[in-house]
Amino acid sequence: MINALVAIDLDLGSSLAIRYAESISDLIDMTVQSVHVVVPDKSGPEPGMGWVRKTWETAMKNTDREDIERFLELENAVRPRFFKPKILLGDRQEELLHELQAGDYDLFIEGALPTFNPADFNALVNSRLYKLMPCPAAMIVKNLVTPQKAALLLDDDIDYSPLVSSFLSVLNKPVMDLDVYYCRFGKGSDVEVVSQAPDSPLFAKAVDKLKEAGWEPKACREITGSPKEISEALREYSLAASALKHSSNKKNPMAETLGRVLSSVLLCWG
């Protein structure tokens, strides 16, 4: 049973995240806890200590709880568990980190609409929340697409074994079509796709591990191009999965590719 935490606010990204989480929970055995963090208005004074602060915090949470519950009602979320959101107060990233640690979650889900500027995605995955995320995987929901076809992206900078393990810890059975890509990042003008697996024992081992778990990739391909071109070539997929290192804070081509794809992204920590 996968234990997932969905972060929600009152926006379109969260609406997409809720719907995507519902779609995924139709496919895999998953419990979902929704959470909303009330961020105190920095411009106003915060009460100091004791019952005054307690009363203030309760009032803040209750106001947002009503809004979030109304939002969920409007979303027509059919799973009752979504209607019991945890309401936390404080810094969003810190509160989510605490909750992820306390709840021992397997998956973090949030909505983040794709932007034209890949630096936005880079900033997101290099934020404190993602750097210190204790769960093995994060789903960034960018668009509302039925999860039918996934692309698992590998490259030379990725340690395949933990990636595949994290992938399988979330998608523990074959619930959609899967293609596996080995990406060669370059600055060429045209993207090139070779419809055969690269001659690499590590790649073969990763595919074997997927097969052992019941996933039979429909295709294993090698793709060459810039992150922009590769992301364009992946338009048919409803989910792109790959790994990023917690420790890496520099811009890397895989992060840029994942930032540019319009589909949702499953980030596994390598």
Binding site: L16, L113, P114, T115, F116, L144, L262
Partner: peptide, 18 residues
């Protein structure tokens, strides 16, 4: 709009641009 077009079986992608 997303709901409107989804209701018409149109695949719509959202994106933000500064």
């Amino acid at each position: 709009l997303l709901d409107y077009y989804a209701g018409s079986d149109i695949r719509a992608w959202v994106q933000l641009v500064e």
